[in-house]
Nucleic acid binder design. Structure first.
Length: 336
DNA sequence: AAAGTCTGCAACCGCTTTCTT
DNA sequence: CAAGAAAGCGGTTGCAGACTT
């Protein structure tokens, strides 16, 4: 019945591995192959638990492990995968050749997580949270300008921020322009003294599927009132079918349109909303077809507000993540 | 230069899942 | 099918080196 005990833990060595131990383990596995960790320590002459041997091999000694700094592309992939898979480090590692789950987990906790928080992104939900943002360092920076601000928010949806600035630049009220998105207000002008606040409710007249700007007067947190031009996005068109499972905002889906928007925005002087009479226009009208869309999935129930997500569907989305192009302008080092 | 603090990462711990008997 | 061990996995810890005061 069952198996015999793994190993007698008394008297086994713990702590950092020595070169001699690494050599013993490597030579043994080169001859006998990995696996059978219970008997490995005894057969190889190591005074270690089999579990410790397995960990040392899989996380450090394996020949196919890639050492050194994570590349920008790897970092972006980790963020994207984490937004879909959560803390499933082994699943993330399976999609990053040469990287171990332990390495990715450590890198997330020591680098990426901190950076997301600093930039106002909740590392758990991947959604903006201005209460996490280190605003003082941003707003008091001598190099503070709009392009830097867009880089900060690039993980949310840089194209929307760019569009917000574009529309705001045409406004008569240059002092108080804001981007309103998913219940957060982002500054789109260069006034560092302007308070930034979460809004507590969505304006009732916010149209769906449209980018929208209008002079606005409303109460924000702490009893403060905001007056100025709000640029809003409430994107819920049929394109949501392209959204990945588990993602409940529109930022990822909008990335499909990144290149098209960039070209539109670069012609900012001639670019105007399609419907200026009511200060709004349909986002579908300027981004008619995705450049590189994930494979549309069959059941709408797996998407927003859905729960019946299957492993295959997640797999399908994850494979498509790597088709997304990363804009050259997203040089994080420039900002940090 | 010394002491204190911070940071990054290898390794461990303990829980869950898979597998063997 | 059940029991229990092996393997897998994610969270946490401890320590060495870097950095700050």
């Amino acid at each position: 019945m069952g198996r015999s005990p793994c190993c007698d833990k008394s008297g086994l060595k713990k702590g950092p591995w020595t070169q001699e131990e690494d050599l013993k383990l490597t030579e043994y596995i080169q001859i006998h192959g990995p696996g059978n960790w219970r008997t490995l320590p005894k057969n190889s002459g190591l005074e270690r638990c089999g579990k410790s041997c397995r960990l040392r091999w899989t996380n450090y000694l394996r020949p196919d492990i890639k050492r050194g700094r994570f590349s920008f592309e790897e970092e972006e992939s980790i963020i994207q995968l984490h937004s879909v898979l959560g803390n499933k480090w082994s699943a993330i590692a399976a999609r990053l050749p040469g990287r171990t789950d332990n390495e990715i987990k450590n890198y997330w906790n020591t680098h990426i997580r901190k950076r997301l928080i600093k930039n106002g992104i909740d590392p758990v939900t991947h959604r903006p949270r201005l209460d996490l943002m280190d605003l003082s360092s941003i707003l008091t920076s001598a190099s503070f300008n709009l392009s830097n601000l867009f880089k900060i928010q690039s993980l949310v949806n840089p194209q929307v921020l760019s569009l917000a600035n574009l529309l705001a630049s045409t406004s008569s009220n240059q002092e108080n322009n804001k981007l309103f998105l998913n219940n957060y207000i982002f500054p789109v002008n260069q006034n560092p003294n302007e308070p930034i606040a979460n809004v507590t409710s969505t304006p009732s007249n916010l149209p769906s599927n449209q980018l929208w700007h209008q002079e606005h007067h409303m109460e924000v947190n702490n009893g403060e009132y905001f007056s100025g031009n709000l640029v809003s996005l409430n994107y819920q068109s049929s394109q949501e079918k392209l959204m990945p499972p588990c993602i409940t905002d529109n930022s990822i889906a909008l990335q499909n349109y990144s290149d098209q928007f960039t070209s539109q925005a670069s012609e900012s002087s001639s670019f105007q909303p399609s419907n200026t009479e009511n200060n709004s226009f349909n986002i579908d009208s300027i981004f008619p077809t995705p450049i590189s869309s994930p494979t549309p999935l069959d059941s709408s129930s797996v998407f927003i507000n859905g729960s019946s997500t299957t492993e295959d569907e997640i797999e399908s989305y994850c494979n498509n993540i790597f088709k997304f192009e990363i804009p050259e302008s997203l040089e994080l080092e420039d900002f940090m």
